[in-house]
Design a protein around this nucleic acid. Sequence first.
DNA 1: CCTTCAGGTTAACGAGCGCTAACCTCCCTG
DNA 2: CAGGGAGGTTAGCGCTCGTTAACCTGAAGG
Lengths: 207, 207
Amino acid sequence: MATRTDAPTRREQILKEAARLFAERGFHGVGVDEIGAAVGISGPGLYRHFAGKDAMLAELLVGISDSLLTGAKRRLAEAGSDRAGAAGPEAVLDSFIEGHIDFALDDRPLITLHDRELDRLRDADRKMVRQLQRQYVELWVGVLREVYPALAEPAARSAVHSVFGLLNSTPHLGRAGSLPGRAVTASLLHRMARGAFAAVGEEGQGR
Amino acid sequence: MATRTDAPTRREQILKEAARLFAERGFHGVGVDEIGAAVGISGPGLYRHFAGKDAMLAELLVGISDSLLTGAKRRLAEAGSDRAGAAGPEAVLDSFIEGHIDFALDDRPLITLHDRELDRLRDADRKMVRQLQRQYVELWVGVLREVYPALAEPAARSAVHSVFGLLNSTPHLGRAGSLPGRAVTASLLHRMARGAFAAVGEEGQGR
DNA sequence: CCTTCAGGTTAACGAGCGCTAACCTCCCTG
DNA sequence: CAGGGAGGTTAGCGCTCGTTAACCTGAAGG
């Protein structure tokens, strides 16, 4: 039933290494020979698995966006049928934040690619990615406006984008695993995201 | 005494257009012919003004980092001798945030380059940029820990980087000037930044 | 009026890179 | 045991792109 068979296949190896290299040196900055070398084969052997370099980037970016959106949908559904039948929108928002942080911490190369190399896609793929991204944003906006009903929609959308910027800052935090521990970092990011939302959601706060 | 004479010279035209193009399509994604065409001359005429394409990027990135650092130093000094002789650290923090937002809103292409193409520099330039960046971060960390003395230094540094991510999200906000007005956006970003800092600065906040 | 020089121009070279062609070699199946 | 396809290999083509070379030109200065 699942589209994948069993073990981490060659394709996935390639995708993983390509993601890392693209994030490190940029899409144009890495050659197919390097990607091949990273998985033990050399150069054009990649073309047995992908139609071209562009196809790798496309599959990565679509995969990222789809994964984020799917995760958010799942979390929304789970919250709707969690315990008593209706967990508050606050819980959903926390769940969204948690999911995004997990992604940002576990797949840092992907999160880097996500907003860096999108323009290198051909039109069809780029539109697909953007549509998935927009759906993801809309889920956040909807939940956010449930938590803070006074928040206007444009402001909510801007706030969501800004919090994405905050959460996606993980690549800049520790160049070489100097993070003070994954759980600590996750908690810090989570509190900051909630604080940022609260600051725009609760209007009329002077100082 | 100033290193520049008077009017926006050709060099500056080139730098401005190069910044825009690099931000749009990436350093490797734009050719020298395009940069030349953007300022009315064609192709290798650029080499009368710059040693090469790398030199343009280097000058841009060093200029950005230096400008941010210089601005922060000035704001810190101004606050120290502002009115009564000692404006609170909160005012300095607000001033830092305001300055960074101005930069992020006025020079979006540069802010994009800032954390996107740094790895394409040769070692000497990259070290210079990183040193300037670190000094800038340290100024923020110092002020932040004055405002929130309970905040440990690693957490403060992470928080600063994360807020940079938040403030630097401006390129994702409105693709084509769909922002709800510059002042409104600036205010929103400012409140979110303060809210994010407050959330980590004031410990022991349950929910 | 001749020189000089800043600031252009076009032609062309050389390197790098994506991709294809042609070939090889297991392993699996009938 | 034939054979065929999956998954490699190396050689090489063609194009792009950064950079250089050689040449041109108009304006300032003695």
